[in-house]
Write a protein that binds this DNA or RNA. Structure first.
Length: 298
DNA sequence: GGCCAGGTGGCCA
DNA sequence: TGGCCACATGGC
């Protein structure tokens, strides 16, 4: 198969820095970074395809279909293009963010060092929420280990040139598990309950990307999803930022953010919420981008 | 060995 | 509303 589609990218975009972000943990199992390309098994509409994304030059991304289903018509192709644009958050104009960042003591360095970084998205709602729950209150490395166990136990895979590529388990699959079974993986029973509960809501159609997005504003969506057991303000904002692409979502209680601020300003201890509110006064509209660049700076 | 991890729900005043 | 506390495990 050598079918490919070229997708134009905006000016403030650097594929390599985004790849570096995607390559940040060796235990990552839902994509592979190699030979300056991203390889990922994706499910889009009803098509399951192994895709490869590379950047032959600065102004385009090239989407290759390596294995699995191929788009059958222009409509399918459009879905894949939308997916890639969503994945790399290409539809945001970052000029205003860069302008404010260049004058911001906290963001100055990070935007230079990671020029062209986008908030890489987790397009699938269940995957994004499940990852948020996994990441709650444990070190990231361990979170990746748990993710790998769940994916390799309950996810689907495709083999290509001797390598296995995984799809995050569907909500339906996880909804059918018991807490006893899921917590065999070294996860708290609480986390298992949260994850199964959310899987049930999604599998039954009570919770979906479309219905949440139709609520409109980020504030309304946040208010709605924190009603769900296991989703607090941090996870809600994490979802808004990493899956719904709200550039002004702000997981202000995030430990990683606190550590990054401490490091950038060479503080003795982590800043308080009040101090962060002060420091972030000028980020209005781009809190998520500021947070993401600070994470990357760690 | 103790404390902290990309928090949250539940209990108590 | 606001303040603790358990939660399972890994890393330092």
């Amino acid at each position: 198969m050598d079918k490919y589609i070229d997708i134009p990218v905006p000016k403030i975009f650097d594929f390599n820095v985004n790849l570096q972000f995607l390559n940040r943990n060796a235990n990552e199992c839902t994509h592979e970074v190699k030979d300056h390309a991203l390889i990922k098994y994706v499910e889009i509409s009803s098509l399951k395809s192994l895709i490869k994304i590379s950047a032959p030059n600065k102004s385009i991304l090239r989407l290759h279909f390596l294995a699995g289903d191929l788009p059958q018509n222009k409509e399918d192709e459009k879905l894949f293009i939308d997916y890639v644009e969503h994945l790399f958050d290409l539809n945001k104009d970052l000029h205003a963010f860069y302008k404010l960042a260049e004058a911001d003591p906290l963001l100055q360095k990070p935007v230079i060092e990671a020029y062209g970084l986008r908030i890489v998205q987790i397009p699938d709602l269940f995957e994004a929420l499940a990852w948020g729950i996994l990441g709650q209150q444990i070190n990231l490395n361990f979170a990746y280990q748990l993710k790998r166990e769940i994916v390799e136990k309950y996810g689907q895979s495709i083999t290509y040139k001797g390598e296995i590529y995984w799809l995050f388990p569907s909500a339906k699959r996880i909804a059918n598990l018991t807490v006893d079974k899921l917590s065999k993986i070294k996860m708290t029973r609480r986390k298992s309950e949260f994850m199964i509960g959310i899987a049930e809501l999604i599998a039954s159609g009570q919770l979906s990307r479309e219905t949440l997005l139709s609520l409109g504003s980020k504030e309304v969506i946040e208010k709605e999803i924190v009603k769900i057991r296991g989703i607090g303000p941090w996870t809600a904002n994490y979802l808004l930022m990493r899956s719904f692409g709200f550039p002004d979502a702000f997981p202000i209680a995030d430990v990683g953010l606190h550590n990054a601020i401490k490091k950038q300003l060479k503080l003795d201890k982590k800043p308080s919420i009040e101090e962060i509110l002060k420091l972030s006064q000028n980020w209005t509209g781009y809190e998520a981008y500021a947070t993401f660049y600070l994470w990357y700076s760690l």
